[in-house]
Amino acid sequence: MGTERVRVVVVDDEHLVRMALRLIVDGEDDLVVVGEAADGDTAITVVKEHRPDVVLMDVRMPGRDGLSATEEILALPEPPRVLVLTTFDSDEMVLGALRVGALGFVLKDTPPTRILDAVRTVAAGEPALSPAATARLIAAATGPRSSDARRTSRDTARGLLATLTGRERQTAHAIADGLANTDVARRLDITVATVKAHTSNMLAKLGVENRVQIALLVRDAEE
Rank of each mutant, 00 (worst) to 15 (best):
Thr42His: 11
Glu209Ser: 12
Pro131Arg: 07
Val82His: 11
Ala172Glu: 05
Asp117Asn: 09
His50Gln: 14
Leu160His: 06
Ala135Gln: 14
Ala180His: 02
Thr86Arg: 04
Val184Met: 03
Glu14Val: 14
Thr110Asp: 02
Gly96Tyr: 05
Gly125Cys: 04
Lys205Asn: 02
Leu76Tyr: 11
Val218His: 08
Val8Pro: 01
Pro127His: 07
Glu78Met: 01
Ser90Lys: 06
Val192Arg: 14
Phe88Pro: 00
Asp58Lys: 03
Ala157Lys: 09
Met93Lys: 04
Ile175Tyr: 04
Arg150His: 09
His173Val: 15
Ala37Arg: 07
Gly35Arg: 04
Leu206Asp: 08
Glu49Pro: 05
Leu188Pro: 10
Ile175Asn: 03
Leu179His: 09
Arg22Tyr: 06
Thr152Cys: 01
Glu168Lys: 07
Ala140Pro: 03
Ala180Arg: 08
Ala69Leu: 06
His198Phe: 07
Asp189Asn: 14
Ala204Gln: 13
Ala75Lys: 15
Ala133Phe: 05
Asp13Gln: 06
Thr45Ile: 07
Asp189Lys: 12
Val17Asp: 05
Leu217Asn: 03
Leu107Asp: 05
Ala75Gly: 13
Ala123Glu: 02
Asp89Tyr: 01
Glu223Thr: 14
Pro112Asp: 05
Asp13Phe: 02
Ala97Tyr: 07
Leu188Ser: 11
Asp148Glu: 13
Arg18Leu: 08
Thr191Ala: 13
Met61Arg: 08
Leu116Thr: 12
Val106Glu: 03
Met202Cys: 08
Leu31Thr: 10
Arg219Trp: 11
Arg169Thr: 13
Val9Tyr: 09
Met57Val: 07
Leu129Tyr: 03
